[in-house]
Amino acid sequence: DGAAVLPAPQNLSVRSVNMKHVLTWSPVIVPEEIIHYSVEYQGEYESLYMSHIWIPSSWCSPTQRPECDITEDITATVSYSLRVRATLGSLTSAWSTLKHRFNQNSTILTPPRMEITMDGFHLLIKLEDLGPHFEFFVSYWRKEPGAKEHVKVVRPGVLPVYLEMVEPGAAYCVKARTFVKAIGRHSAFSQPECVKVQGEALPL
């Protein structure tokens, strides 16, 4: 019937790093027009028990950008269906649904960024705050053969955190990884960072 038809958004995909999940898609282009998009999701429960029910995303119903932060919508470790449609005035496209359902346990966990410093003979670490999902396991050791490796759970905060008393003249190394309780997974360890302590080594 010749009515103008708005194309549905294409190329839906989810980029998930450190439990931050972003749905992206190719923008629908209509010259000199502003397109709005609406995003909806369905958890495994909804698709099994109430498949006609879709839930509007927290932040993107509607949105003008061809992406949507769905982190606050993905709140259980089950697989989620996601769909997007475009609207222009009274015109609405068909829904486009993500081809493969998304589960937060597939998120990419990167080794945490850390900063190792000294204050006198105190070895300190500062960790980036990745949000409430994350615990940080820090390993540190004296750089000498057979040295014992210590492990500490560190809570990121505004200030650097004390790890250990060190001895003058010695070298110490530190590495860290994250743990996400909700999905029961660790990141890889960061590259070890080593520091040399000022001063003369103590006589034996």
Binding site: D119, H122, R155, L159, P160, V161, Y162
Partner: peptide, 10 residues
């Protein structure tokens, strides 16, 4: 334990 506003011990 906060040490002169530069770091803390937990």
């Amino acid at each position: 334990l906060r040490i002169n506003h530069t770091y803390q011990m937990d």
